[in-house]
Write a protein that binds this DNA or RNA. Sequence first.
RNA 1: GCCCGGGUGGCGGAAUGGCAUACGCGGGGGACUUAAAAUCCCUUGCCCUCCGGGGCGUGCGGGUUCGACUCCCGCCCCGGGCACCA
Length: 834
Amino acid sequence: MAEYDPQAIERKWQERWGAERAFEADADPSKPKYYVLEMLPYPSGTMHMGHMRNYTIGDVVARYRRMRGFHVIHPMGWDAFGLPAENAAIQRGIHPREWTNTNIESFKRVMHRFGFSYDWRREISTCEPEYYRWNQWFFLRMLEKGIAYRKRSRVNWCPKCATVLANEQVVNGCCWRHEDTPVESKDIEQWFFRITQYADELLDTLKQLEDGWPERVLTMQRNWIGKSRGARVRFAVEGMAGTSIEVFTTRVDTIYGASAVILAPEHPLVDKLLGDAGANTVHAATLQKMRQASVKTADIEKAEKEGFFVGRYAVNPFNGEKIPIWVGNFVLMGYGTGAVMCVPAHDERDFEFATKYKLAIPIVVQPSEGKQFTPETPTAAFTEYGKSVNSGPYTGFTSEKANEIMTADAEARGFGKGEIIFRLKDWGISRQRYWGTPIPVIYCDACGMVAVPDKDLPVVLPAMAKFSGVGQSPLASVPEFVNVKCPKCGGAARRETDTMDTFVDSSWYFYRYADAHNDKAPFDPAKARYWLPVDQYIGGIVHAILHLLYTRFFCKVMRDLGLVNHNEPVQRLFTQGLVLKGGTAMSKSKGNVVGAEDMAVKYGCDTGRLYTLFAAPPEKDLEWSEQAIEGCARFLQRVHKLVSKHAEWVNTQRTEVAPGQAFELASLKEKALLRKAHQVLRRVTHDFETRWHFNSAVALLMELVNEIQKAEPLEEGVRPEEARKVFELLTLMMAPMVPHLAEELWEMLGHTGGTLARAGWPEFVAELAAEDQVEVVMQINGRVKGKVSVEAGLDREELVERVKSDPKIAKLLEGVRVVKIIAVPDKLVNVVAG
RNA sequence: GCCCGGGUGGCGGAAUGGCAUACGCGGGGGACUUAAAAUCCCUUGCCCUCCGGGGCGUGCGGGUUCGACUCCCGCCCCGGGCACCA
């Protein structure tokens, strides 16, 4: 009897799976497909148990689906472009490609070691020209459709680095590499994807995902898109003919309560309104400060509201009233029109501002019922809907009605109109970085901006020797790259030197998996039609907005290009919890990582897989515990021992039984074991199928093993062929979670020469699972007083009789006045006493 | 401030209207051993007990129900996300 040697077993089966191409599947319309996808990793440093948990969950699902007869696609690849590679180059002098490829090799080695059932033929790496040329291809298609465009835009700028910083690179308002250097804001030309063109649809089709995506992810996306229905209203500026200010409001019904118009500090009219004389210098410093402050939203978090009167008045178009024009730091240029009407009585921010600067607080809405809002010493704004008051001809209408009529009137009278605006902004994709996809555009002095023709793709990233991290786009310093002939006129021209945001890479990669080596197109639409959309996507909640929104946007663009025929790329999304150690998420920077490979060396990967599945349900965070792992290792040893001990007996002995006699002969012990096995099967199947509570599935398997061990010695009272059935059920149920050990047990049980990878999931047999005796609980007034064992399936009356006639129960019922009896067959009898 | 999660033994967690604490970890006791490790067995919510048993118990307070960890209302605490979005 061999000892459990996880290293040897795991190597053996990984080799076997490879030799049998066990996890490869090709499009075959005659078979039902299932696409299981884990978010592709950014290969940085070493793979830790946080990554591992994600892939384990995916692997269990993939293996389970295969056993259920699906044609499963389960691919893996690398999000290989990105900043860390470039930083490694700057700090350590290693080329980003070399650093990235080393990490990929390391990740891949560990993934193999964990036995994840990927179809490696489909592997992609986003930093390879074979992949990123299709980013460029998509860019060109979007350029043709006007979805890709260029405009000036504000960015974070470090004057010392002379480069653009991502929001994450701004620390306390300063550059992450120059902590004493405040970040400036700067307007530069940037490339954008017009995602706002799809804003309404991106919001709308979230409905189709309601059954498959976590509610909170849908909510986050809805909030991010931020659709807002309101009105745009024009206020004339008094004394400046032809100048007016447009405000956006969702509460045009409160316009009679406006006591000011407030502009964002960056609003283009501010300087004009201030004029070039005294006023400008008085407020110049304040204005400058406000404009600086608004670069990074986190910095203005709790900033106090500040503002100043610009010295001019606006005219309320509804009642002709003159109200002062102010500049306020809380008004955002990037939202709506960059100007608001200030209605202090009915908006909290306006209330705060008006209180500070002693502006009037006219009340124009009263609650429809209940206590009226009083003007003396108001302490808060009334922001709910109610009834209009003091609103001229609109007085008396409900807020809803007033909104409707006033919007229509504004439009009829020519100073406003109903409008829907979105919080979502266009996606800025330009990065002044080296390690990314070159943007395939050429600038010619004669022809202007010229798209690189398809035949010239890919625009290959040049090999670079030096990375200083200082200066503009690194590519600008490579003359061989920059200097190019204009594709139109053949004259001297320059290439675009910005690269694309890496979120572009990950927006469509799982379509490429369907046809990873196509060199004519990003993928063959026919193959995509078979495999996509993704049936089950698994990843971290961190990607709830950006990645998942961008990928939904790409799907719609691809649909409009005729490449795909569905509206949503991902049917079901599962967001797994973090792996914590010492209460915080494992991460290299925190220094609390448990390396996945170390884990596999110490305990074997099956133990590692089992632990991450058993320690918590997959959506919850999981605290790393070395002691609990030992428990999982012990369990697997116990199972190995149990099966190997009986393997010979089970394989060689046969009891001669005439057909049809089997059930008669079955001993109580046999029946009990098979019953337990099928009860476990029913619940494990349920856990796999609907709830994904792998932790309770593991617990059930442990129960089954405990039950078998209690029945030892099996040879007494159990026939070998019946024991085999129990062992086989156990093995098959373990297979998705601890596949290597399961294969080994399967082989011990006499199934030589194949693999479990395509074995069928066992069939549940209700008759075998059925109990013939059940414990029924006896309650008096809902309190448990005793238990009675009765035959299963008794109806209510029989059950009550049986329970009543139990001597112990009968005694308890003496002298009790019975009001009512509740009986639940096979469960309980509750006597309600008076 | 708003929006999600969540609160159950010493710990991770199970139970979605019907025996609260399955399964695992840890603890206690025992067997084996010269001894230890490993393994195996018993035990393990709290309180009272005349050792028969009895009472209390799922963050707190109320409600619905024959019966509530589970459903409803109101609070408290913890974690996460968003945060001047007009």
